Computed example of a mutant assay.
Amino acid sequence: MEHNQFRAWLKLQGIEHEEKWLEQFDSACKEDGQAIVNIALLYKVHGQYDEMYDLLNKAVEQQNREAMYELGNCYFEQLGEKGSEHQAFLLYQSAAQLGHPDAMNNLADMYLNGEGTAVDEQRALSWFKKAAQLGVAEAMFTLGMMYEQGLGTECDESQAFAYYSCSAELQDVEAMYRIGMICFSGELGQQQDQEKAVEWFLKASEQFHVDATFNIGYCYEHGCGVTRNNDKAIHYYKKASLLGDMEATKKIVNYYELTDPAEVTKWREKLIVLNNDINE
């Protein structure tokens, strides 16, 4: 595609910041590796998979680690029905060896889950640690899980809690929820602290974590770490229901059966919809 053809394509797609993208396109034509990746990802967003693959493969030939990582993602997702998990594994491996943090995390995931390669928990642990050292919050969360469950290493509650905490501080939503559960129940050798649990559930709920949102409703309903408040309990149960939680919806139905017949009908209908979605 030439400069004017790319300009016409941008207009056809209604893409903003046309001049910025034209500059990126011209840089890509001059073999700028990052610009090549940027244009490839623009094609990805707009479903132009053949053009995307052509550009990413071109950048991979230049040993561009970002291109290796992104092409690995595309093969893993099998966009355009191309690629395989094993090809994704090889690309993540190459990018990880060149120091790409997210590729290290994805490579570790594949070792842990046996995707595109044989299960190897110890190699998974090693790569998760490398990714964690480079600040990947998801890797820290998984390390917490591995130390908690003894995957690829001995069980170590102290290490597990430390990794979960680091991940949560970096705003990983699953880690925030897990820390909330640890505080709520007093797990991993930690003292029970339901007030702190609610704080972490609230942080996870802000990122639309459905179980954390349900738990806040439960805490307000039963006075766990907060003062009992039925209105706030229902508020959070409604939020959880809108995120697809059936148990929260049942809680709302039970509440309105005693207080508001009109609301009961609406939430029973919601419960039917959720039940149908689960059974489809």
Rank of each mutant, 00 (worst) to 15 (best):
S27T: 15
V210K: 13
L170H: 13
L22R: 15
T153I: 12
Y147N: 11
D172G: 07
K130G: 01
N254H: 13
C183R: 09
H235D: 07
E247I: 03
W21Q: 09
M1H: 11
E85Q: 13
L143Q: 11
D277I: 14
E61Y: 04
W9K: 08
D172V: 04
R178A: 11
I15V: 13
S167E: 08
K130H: 00
D120A: 07
D50E: 04
Y69Q: 03
L98Q: 05
Q78S: 06
L12G: 10
D193C: 04
N230E: 15
L107Q: 02
V198R: 10
G114I: 02
T259P: 05
K20A: 12
A95P: 08
F214R: 14
T227H: 06
Y163R: 00
M110C: 09
K58I: 05
N230W: 12
E16D: 15
E263G: 06
S241Y: 14
Q13P: 05
Y237Q: 11
S158V: 10
E31C: 06
M110T: 01
A137W: 06
N106Y: 08
Q34V: 00
G135A: 08
S84Y: 01
Y53K: 08
L91Y: 11
C183H: 06
E257M: 12
E61A: 12
A204L: 15
E19R: 11
C219D: 10
L22P: 15
M104D: 02
S165I: 01
E2Y: 13
D50A: 03
K251V: 07
N73L: 07
D193E: 06
E247C: 03
S241D: 14
T259D: 08
D120L: 08
H17I: 06
K82A: 04
N73V: 04
C224K: 09
S167T: 09
Y256A: 14
V37T: 05
S94I: 00
F208W: 09
L107R: 00
Q63G: 02
N57S: 14
G114D: 04
R7M: 15
D156Y: 05
N64H: 05
T213Q: 12
C74Y: 04
K129M: 10
N38V: 01
Q97E: 12
G114F: 02
C155A: 09
E154L: 12
L202H: 11
M176G: 09
G225P: 04
Q13M: 15
A28L: 11
K232G: 00
K82H: 08
V198Y: 06
T153S: 12
L56A: 14
L10K: 12
E174R: 13
V210G: 09
K30P: 08
Y53N: 07
E70H: 15
I182C: 05
V264G: 03
V273D: 14
Y164P: 07
K58P: 07
L90R: 03
H209A: 07
V173W: 01
H100A: 04
E19H: 10
N113M: 01
